[in-house]
Design a protein around this nucleic acid. Structure first.
Lengths: 339, 339
DNA sequence: CTGAAAGCGCTTACAG
DNA sequence: CTGAAAGCGCTTACAG
């Protein structure tokens, strides 16, 4: 396994160029020598090292995916889509992490400078416009998922619209006093969802009670965790006047919120956001984000851009779909998960 | 960004060796020249390419993780542990996929031959002993998670014991007629869990009714999916004689099973296996696998082996812990998720 | 069809 | 402290 192209060439009595041709399926090799080379290579357990090939070819056949933390259901679904899609191409996926901290840009640049990938997909990496701009100088193919910057290809979901639709669904049921469980209010998805939520209430002429927009204390993963939803719902239920219904910024928080209601021995209609794999099984009404499809599209678009650098930049915004299940009254009357 | 070490050297009026030294923090450089080089490099947006460095150094500072499919909660938790752990070292994680098919060995070898990583972690890649042996010839540092082979470091959980404990918990509640929802009966974890299940029943002198060991039709991911659990529980409930309680091979299937019970308007005590992040929130009694810790340990062990190739091989087997929640009668009397 | 040679972008003894 | 040179393991025109 530690043999090189030289070892094979020597053993086979040919030049390294010929060995290289054999492994690159270059037709300009006699069947005879090809077989000989292959036999010897097999004997010595030889296989060209991707590292050396990449350097010589000046391309690595690698696509680098940058994610803040992998342990997030959203990323997982997106990654699944990417993996299934990339199987059709001659590329491998390299997944690298950045920590969600203040030097996000630095970490991202560090990865890009290393130059492993021919192209980069950034999932939920939230930077400011001028920071994005600074990445522009690397002139690398980049696709952003769950973010927007005019200079790169971009794939996202309209959170404002989704929140609007979700809230409207509650309003349609006749609810007026509607609360919201948000995540970190400074995070982009949270901001957008709060905006859509407020807009829907305003358009319907209902009051927006700031005390009913709550989040939990656990801000891990920007608050997109079960316990945050639990804490938030607990707070909400401790209000003097409890909302009639609730829009929740994510499915994962909704799980916690449901538990909180159960613990408090009460339940109000709930609409969440994401449609994770398990949501169907807990009967959660939610706004479906086409995560898997987004992952697939990202691969397609990136590989396309690697091949045609000059093509026009494209921005795709998906509209989330309302998936009605039993956590919303119209359907079965109440939350599934209860005791 | 497309500048090389030569460009910097020329601009700075030094040799490439000096530039290299600067970027490798070699102390043998005057502060003056160091600054000059750095300034110019910054100007030209230069950074050493990891590819070229790896080739010259003969080490890539990369650890390659091989997983069958990433969209699996078990992998996700394990990966999270690996990522958090690797932050402490000078390595990057490269995650590559293999499809769960008949040529698993081939795919794995293909990846190893490419030689990207200095070491490899294989999660839930199930091969036979002679296949593992054939990987031995690459003399690469390898750590197996969720598998066992005497020739490599290995980290796993005792599924037999876990199933035994889980079943015993049900027996302790006074249940005698106990059913089991298994996944693909040919998969290693399924086999082990069935074995532990049977053994517990036998040791307690209870009958093992083969008709009560069921699985669903959906064999995606070896049946470790919600819908499989749903189908399985549906079948189980359609038996003439319905079991008094059920052991379920995984949390993810338990989610489906719970929905099935709800749809059938019935519920029996349930113990599952895994303890996924959301399980707490659906009140699932389950056998906890220390997935996160397993991921952390794998990184530690692999990096250790990269440094000390000759150390003794170690096999770690974790014992899963019984986590009692409300899906099991002793606690609240019944399953949480119901209507 | 095949080989000699230059090149990919670095690192690292070796000399000085 | 610094440079010239060989080497890492390949690919790819260029000649023949």
């Amino acid at each position: 396994m530690n043999s090189t192209i030289y070892d094979i060439a020597r053993e086979a009595g040919v030049s390294i160029a010929t060995v290289s041709r054999v492994f690159n399926n270059n037709p300009n090799v006699t069947e005879k020598t090809r077989e000989k080379v292959l036999a010897i290579a097999d004997d010595l357990g030889y296989h060209p090292k991707a590292l050396a090939q990449s350097l010589a070819r000046k391309k690595s056949k690698i696509i680098t995916v940058i994610v803040p933390v992998i342990s997030n259901y959203f990323f997982m679904e997106v990654l699944a889509g990417m993996q299934d899609k990339i199987a059709a191409f001659d590329y491998d996926l390299q997944i690298l992490n950045v920590r969600d901290s203040d030097n996000l840009l630095e970490q991202t640049e560090h990865i890009m400078k290393q130059g492993w990938g021919e192209g980069y997909i950034l999932i939920s990496v939230h930077l400011e416009d001028k920071e994005w701009k600074s990445l522009d100088k690397y002139t690398l193919p980049i696709v952003l998922i769950d973010e927007y910057f005019s200079g790169f290809d971009t794939i996202s979901v309209d959170s404002v619209e989704g929140a609007y639709t979700a809230t409207n669904h509650l309003i349609d049921q006749g609810c007026k006093r509607i609360g919201m469980i948000s995540a970190n209010p400074l995070s982009k998805p949270s901001m957008d969802r709060i905006m859509g939520f407020k807009r829907a209430l305003e358009d319907a002429g209902h009051m927006v009670n700031p005390e009913w927009i709550v989040t939990g204390d656990n801000m891990t993963r920007d608050g997109f965790v079960e316990s945050n939803g639990y804490e938030a719902m607990m707070k909400m239920l401790e209000n003097e006047q409890v909302p009639e219904a609730c829009f929740c910024a994510s499915d994962i928080q909704a799980l916690g919120a449901i538990k909180a209601m159960r613990d408090k021995n009460t339940r109000i209609p709930l609409v969440a956001f994401d449609d994770l794999e398990f949501s169907e099984y807990v009967g959660l009404t939610t706004m479906r984000q086409p995560m898997y499809e987004m992952g697939q599209l990202a691969i397609e678009r990136l590989i396309n851009r690697i091949k045609h650098k000059e093509e026009d930049i494209r921005h795709t915004v998906f509209s989330p779909d309302l998936i009605i299940r039993s956590s919303t009254p119209e359907y079965s009357g109440y939350i599934d998960t209860s005791e």
